[in-house]
Amino acid sequence: MSDREALYEGKAKIVYTSSTEDALILHFKDDTSAFDGEKVEQLARKGEVNNAFNAFIMEYLQSEGVPTHFIRRLDARESLVRRLDMIPVECVVRNRAAGSLTKRLGIEEGRVLEPPTLEFFLKNDALHDPMINTSHIRTFGWASAEEVEAMRRWTMRVNTLLKALFAKADLILVDFKLEFGRFQGELYLGDEFSPDGCRLWDAHSLEKMDKDRFRRNLGGVVEAYQEVAQRLGVAL
């Protein structure tokens, strides 16, 4: 894998080619950003924690029948994944009101949403990831009607599974985003699942245990990620 090529570098990961055409390597960085890259810092060990966290969640979802791109963890910072043709749509589930939803709709933070909401956003940094609907997705050819329904179905299934998993660790899964892609004609869950892309609150104190600690200058970002991992039984 020494001849690998960097295909893409994002805010928190670098994607490399691997020794096989159908697989890629995800390298988890220590970089942490917020507000469309306006705030950026490096937090020691964050990449290692997120790599281990993501591997744990992906393996758990696979054990429950969710198709994911994850193959295996290679080392402390890298994982091997299937090479997907990514759909440029983020699927966001909200179990409680937080973040942009509170601003858009004037709803108090923490309100329980029953049933949970599912929103779609176009993955486009230049446009600040605008909110879209299923009609946009189909009209502009980002995904077929069948794929949209599959993304909806798998996203809600993941929500059911992970809400229960985090609840056992005395954590509330407030919201999260998922991305999907195609591999050999089938839809797979792609990208990553870590505290960078979800909100997690302590079930008793409602303390924030996710990237909101970075966004709101609360400190202890990596320490919170580590505590979440330890509660779940993730080997760091």
Rank of each mutant, 00 (worst) to 15 (best):
39 K>G: 03
42 Q>D: 09
40 V>N: 12
50 N>Y: 04
59 E>N: 14
36 D>E: 14
36 D>N: 15
33 S>D: 01
43 L>V: 13
38 E>Q: 14
29 K>L: 15
60 Y>P: 15
58 M>P: 11
44 A>T: 09
59 E>Q: 14
29 K>N: 06
31 D>M: 11
40 V>S: 09
44 A>L: 14
38 E>M: 13
35 F>T: 10
51 N>T: 13
56 F>D: 08
58 M>K: 06
45 R>H: 14
39 K>C: 06
39 K>N: 13
58 M>T: 02
56 F>C: 12
28 F>W: 05
37 G>E: 11
39 K>I: 14
51 N>A: 11
44 A>W: 07
55 A>V: 02
56 F>K: 09
38 E>I: 10
32 T>H: 00
56 F>S: 01
53 F>I: 06
57 I>W: 02
43 L>F: 10
34 A>H: 07
59 E>I: 07
57 I>Q: 03
29 K>A: 01
54 N>V: 08
45 R>V: 03
57 I>K: 04
32 T>C: 04
45 R>G: 01
49 V>R: 04
54 N>I: 01
56 F>H: 13
48 E>K: 14
39 K>R: 15
54 N>R: 06
51 N>P: 04
45 R>A: 07
60 Y>Q: 09
46 K>A: 06
47 G>T: 05
47 G>F: 00
54 N>D: 14
36 D>Q: 11
35 F>D: 10
51 N>G: 00
41 E>V: 09
52 A>V: 01
34 A>Y: 05
50 N>V: 03
50 N>T: 04
29 K>Y: 08
33 S>R: 01
50 N>I: 03
59 E>T: 12
50 N>L: 04
59 E>P: 03
45 R>F: 08
40 V>T: 13
51 N>I: 02
35 F>K: 11
44 A>I: 15
35 F>R: 06
54 N>M: 05
28 F>K: 09
47 G>N: 01
33 S>Q: 08
50 N>R: 04
32 T>L: 12
34 A>V: 04
54 N>W: 04
57 I>R: 07
60 Y>T: 13
60 Y>G: 10
31 D>Q: 11
51 N>L: 05
42 Q>S: 14
40 V>K: 15
41 E>P: 02
54 N>H: 07
48 E>A: 14
53 F>N: 02
28 F>C: 08
30 D>I: 07
